[in-house]
Amino acid sequence: MNKVLKYILIGILVLGALWAAAFFIKSNSKSAITYETNNPFKANVEKKTVATGKVVPEDEVEIKPQISGIIDEIFLKEGDMVKAGDLIAKIKVVPNEQSLNQAKGRVRNAEIALNNTKTEYDRNKVLFDKGVISSQDFNTQQLRYDQAKLELQNARSDYQIIRVGSAGGSATANTNIRATVSGTILEIPVKEGDQVIQSNNFNDGTTIATIADLSIMIFEGKVDEGEVGKLKLGMPLEISLGAINDKKFDATLRFIAPKGIEESGAVQFKIEGDVTVEDDFLIRAGYSANASLVLERKDSVLVIPEALLQFDRKTDKPYVEVAVGPVEEQKFERKDVEVGISDGVNVEIVSGITQEDKVKVWNKTEPIKKGDEDEEDTAEDN
């Protein structure tokens, strides 16, 4: 009886072990991956680089006052179109007390000098009419009288300019701030009541407005030193703006900086390109932009998808695996290849394989089936 019970226990253990082994094999078994192949093909390959930057007007003109004072009134606003000569703002003059007093004193001196000269002129005219003095002496006295009148007129004009900003007969008063070029007002950084300083040899002056022609725009960006040597003036650019989707603008490279600037450990070179602006689109100053430049292009060359390349761990040289015999046999051999330019998707094959070779898609993975997921979850729960 003990032997029968012993054999029964051994049988149960063997069956349990077989069941556990079968379950483990089933839950961890994966179907063998069948590798697909691709044939090399002919295509055009472009090696591009992208320069980040912005689009700005070619010329921006800052309008500055010719006299110091306080903004009395602003007639236009940002975004308005203006023509050269249009009135933008008006300044109320706050005269300097010392300069005003000196100008007033000059007027008084000129009046005194004129009165004295007039007295002399009247006396000499009577003598000249009687024939007592010569015409030369009278002409000299008349010249002094005319000069005294002119000096008084100039002194009064200077006093008027210092007091109110312009002479009464002036066609364009200094207090009137006018546009010097035609375009769009980009910015008016002042408001009514602000004090402004005139532009002179010692001070740039306060900017009243900034004007630019938005129909003439340029791209300003930077490229890495490793790519600047491949650029040439006149190269075409393709500009994409973050604010305008699904639209590309053509441009032409017009400037490459002769000196680089180090930024975050890398040397960057400034570039500029003339942007072709279409009438249907309004490009605002300062839009962020990317410029795509074609550094190298090859037409109708042998290429493969770049994902098919593999690299030797020791030499880091590229190679591919090519099918030997029918693809169904899943036999592959390694072939070293020489590659050329790449556009990030396809890479040029210079040598190593031909268009008839079947290149292994080595990095394809099999999707996990629903049944396998359930079995793995069950095994983890157990």
Rank of each mutant, 00 (worst) to 15 (best):
V164G: 03
L295D: 09
E380I: 13
E151W: 02
G234L: 02
G105N: 11
S342E: 04
D59K: 14
R297T: 11
P65Q: 07
V324M: 04
K360S: 01
L9S: 10
P236Y: 03
T34W: 03
T180E: 12
D374A: 13
D343P: 06
A51L: 02
I161T: 11
N115I: 10
Q330L: 00
E375P: 01
T119Q: 13
Q141M: 09
L76Y: 09
E333A: 14
A84L: 04
I71G: 09
S27D: 13
Q198E: 15
S300T: 05
R334D: 01
E225V: 06
D129M: 07
G352S: 08
R254A: 10
D246V: 04
I216M: 08
N200W: 05
A291H: 04
I208T: 06
Y35Q: 08
P57V: 02
A285P: 12
N38L: 15
V45L: 04
V347R: 08
E220Q: 09
K364N: 12
I368K: 14
N39H: 14
D72E: 15
A209M: 04
S240I: 11
K90L: 03
R178H: 05
I244M: 00
Q66C: 01
R284W: 01
I8C: 10
K230T: 10
E120G: 11
V327I: 13
A323P: 06
Q136R: 12
I70A: 04
P326H: 00
I239E: 06
G165C: 01
L214R: 03
K364G: 10
G169N: 15
I177T: 07
T180P: 05
T206I: 01
A285I: 06
V14S: 09
T207Q: 02
S240H: 08
